[in-house]
Amino acid sequence: MYEFVTGPLAWIAFGIFIIGMTVKVISVIRLASKKDKVVFNHWSWGWSFRSVYRWLIPFGSRSMREKPVLTIVFFVFHVCLLAVPIFLLGHNILWDERWGITWWSFSETSADYLTLLLMAAAIVLILRRIVLPEVRIVTTAYDYLLLAIAVAPFVTGYFAYHQWFDYKTVLIIHILCGEIMLIAIPFTKLSHMILFFFTRAHIGSEMGERRGAKTW
């Protein structure tokens, strides 16, 4: 079973993720050139780049500065979400074994703390959805499902690292959760990990190039 989930299934998951995202990006560009020609009339790489950059750095935009607590939570959540799996020692060893690739990795302790941090951020995000009326009113079951998909690999990974319960089983569940997340990305709201750059670039150009207004 371990061989299967880290072998063929891993290939399938990464394949669907990469091909799915590529198809998504191509179809968005094609659809835009067919039905949203106006987007290209005011396209500006300068405004696009600044719009994306300002929203990638903490407190880079006015919107983020006006909601500092939420901004910190969001950044912690997203940075950990990306950094932990990529720079985890265990993952690097595995990739080295299977595909012969490896790079710099965190110490195991810091990865452990970052995982805790991510889970804490996720709890804040969930509480926020329950407590704040303006967020509760737009929250759907789908939003919780997505949070679960995104956080499950970390919770199970944390369990596996600390060898709670049956290590072998937990590890397999952990890998499955990670693969579910990869597969889900192109087909769900999680695709914002790539589409974010497109919509931000568009609004940057639309407000900036066309009207001289900054969107940050």
Partner: peptide, 21 residues
């Protein structure tokens, strides 16, 4: 339902940043 409307509706994360604006 062009690229803009489709993408916007697809990715709105219901985060609530817009409320106070």
């Amino acid at each position: 339902k062009g690229a803009r409307f489709k993408t916007w509706l697809d990715i709105c994360a219901h985060c609530g940043y817009c409320a106070d604006s």
